[in-house]
């Protein structure tokens, strides 16, 4: 009978956490970029770009992430981690796009008119007037989506990506006693919990510093 959490085990779990964070952070950064583009495209409501963005968002948002993760792994010739990041980015971009569009819609039309009357272009208005207000308003749902992205990395364990959840499952095989298994689950859950709380805390602090 070995003792609970030995040095090796901790290193193994930390490596899992590392992969979880790599997948989560890449997803968050990439989907913030793609999501913004898609959300703005759909917000304009005119032209082929808006139609395509709407089609993409409506389709992807209504299909489970797990289907993308498994589907991409088995149909695209990509290494597991890249395939996981791709699937998660495809999915999360659609979610982020809807949040951004919702935020844009909540900005009064008068802001646009005022900026146009001052000679701002569409892009100028967006960058300098509308988006800064939007980002402030959508901070909460956006953070919620990013937290969800961190949690969703656990879905990647189904394609044997060695992230935290999967590393935990491997180690579990070593334990016989119930108390050890329960403690291991608790440790993994607490790690996800702490990472998410940390992210929420940082975002709260950033808002306070801004205002």
């Amino acid at each position: 009978m070995n003792s609970f959490l030995t040095g090796d085990t901790i290193v193994f779990l930390l490596r899992g956490l590392g992969i979880t964070l790599v997948i989560a952070l890449s997803t968050i950064v990439l989907s913030f970029i793609f999501g913004s583009v898609l959300g703005i495209a759909r917000y304009t409501e005119r032209g082929i770009a808006a139609k395509l963005a709407a089609l993409y968002i409506d389709t992807v948002r209504n299909i489970p992430l797990l289907l993308f993760i498994i589907g991409f792994r088995f149909t695209l010739p990509l290494p597991p981690v890249i395939s996981a990041i791709t699937a998660m980015t495809v999915f999360t971009s659609a979610m982020v796009a809807e949040i951004i569009r919702g935020g844009l819609n909540s900005i009064p039309q008068g802001q646009w008119e005022a900026a146009y009357s001052q000679g701002f272009s569409f892009a100028g208005t967006l960058m300098h007037v509308v988006l800064p207000q939007t980002v402030r308003r959508i901070r909460k749902p956006l953070m919620g989506q990013f937290v969800t992205a961190i949690k969703d990395t656990s879905f990647c364990s189904i394609i044997a990506v060695k992230e935290l959840m999967y590393s935990g499952t491997i180690i579990m095989g070593k334990y016989v006693k119930s108390i050890q298994v329960i403690a291991l689950y608790a440790v993994i859950a607490l790690v996800y919990f702490s990472v998410n709380m940390l992210l929420l805390g940082i975002s709260k602090k950033m808002v306070k510093e801004q205002s």
């Binding site: 656990s154 298994v181 329960i182 919990f193 709380m197 929420l200």
Partner: peptide, 23 residues
């Protein structure tokens, strides 16, 4: 609310499936 919002669903389901039988 905080605990369930900030931990993955997969862990919760696996916990019920793998650990509860031990109890």
């Amino acid at each position: 609310i905080n605990f369930f919002q900030n931990t993955p669903l997969v862990i919760q389901i696996l916990f019920m499936y793998n650990v509860l039988p031990r109890a």
